[in-house]
Write a protein that binds this DNA or RNA. Structure first.
Lengths: 133, 133
DNA sequence: TAATGTCAACGAAAACTTTCGTACTTCGGG
DNA sequence: CCCGAAGTACGAAAGTTTTCGTTGACATTA
């Protein structure tokens, strides 16, 4: 068990694939490769395949081998992985302060009025429920 | 100029060093090594040194060589790097949606009432100013 | 059954990060 | 002047991630 396994933090290439799986649901390598090719036409098929095989080894994805074209599915929900990534970032660069992170997030990407309103609603819920209900 | 240079995204080891530099201000390698050793006693001196030299090459830090013990200083403010990291994460895992990121941040680390209040104040400012003034 | 196309498996190479041994330089004390 | 301590420089090794060429299995069709 290596350090990376413990963190379960997907690499860049892995995250790119996970994004497709989350968006499309269970998919074959070909599906994923085609999707990625739209944005990044240089992406090689075997590169995507290999990465997905490694992801299966790491348990980042589940693989259904009953069909000739194996079908892959993200093992964790997108939200779960997002929380994982944020937790890491929080520890590595924000001293664990979610407040600071939120602050920088809002200034990194100028949020629209609508977004701000959504966030405000969310805060209300958190204050009431004291957490994700 | 490689892909990494373009992103200017510090690696884990680099971020660990940057954290010390941000906390202590300009420091020698020995300073940084001692500080890191507190948390991670296995850290080798030359490892830290080498990483800092690479960081100087990458322009992540500035180096004052006028003294025998070179003095290193983070080139970017902590906040700037934090925004950079968040921007990356936003693109890689959140579809660019700061709202989703904020949502997950708050549920990843259960924010205290005080923190929530701080964030609320921040939102007010953003709404008034329409962004970082 | 032979030809062709699609796919997973495998291994190696390339790129990048991290670690560390070793050499060289400089400074201060004896 | 010589020695040891404290530094930096350098390069190589180890580990990880990413890419890709090649092979073999399987399926479809003529």
């Amino acid at each position: 068990m290596t350090k990376r396994d413990a963190k379960l933090r997907p690499t860049d290439a892995e995250l790119e694939i996970l994004n497709v799986l989350w968006q499309r649901g269970a998919s074959t390598v070909r599906d994923v490769h085609q999707e990625i090719s739209r944005v990044k036409p240089t992406a090689g098929y075997t590169t995507v395949l290999k990465t997905m095989q490694i992801m299966a080894e790491k348990n980042l994805v589940r693989r259904d081998e009953s069909q000739r074209a194996h079908v892959y599915e993200a093992r964790l929900a997108r939200e779960q992985t997002q929380r994982q990534l944020i937790g890491d970032l929080l520890d590595r660069a924000f001293d664990g302060s979610a407040t600071k992170l939120v602050m920088q997030a809002l200034s990194a990407k100028k949020a629209s009025a609508e977004e701000l309103s959504t966030i405000r609603d969310m805060l209300d819920e958190f204050e009431r429920g004291g957490g994700k209900s």
